[in-house]
Amino acid sequence: MRLRRIVMPEIARAGEVIEIRTVILHPMITGHTAAGAGVSGRRIVHTFHVHYDGAEVFRAELGPGIAANPLLTFTTVATRTGDVVFTWMDDTGETAVETRLLTVAPA
């Protein structure tokens, strides 16, 4: 989880829908063995959520069917200047947080 990459505009107009692309380094170990699915040492990023301007604007619950180094892209409406906070949580309890400032110009 030590490498994270976020691609998004730094400036947007109020009301504009912006696309955000995120990638995080994570092996997404399924734990699948011959004995069954996820029975041995599963370690995946299970939750990703994004907060901006007082609300959760996107959330993803992930299963082991998501590829290693999960890429997630989504959109949000630019409302007012503020931090966009990205949080990833994995099975070991580790949490990674990234913050990006979005500057919003009047429409």
Partner: peptide
Amino acid sequence: ETLNRGMLWVEL
């Protein structure tokens, strides 16, 4: 490059 996962390592 915004989708290319190899860019994680380039950034590191």
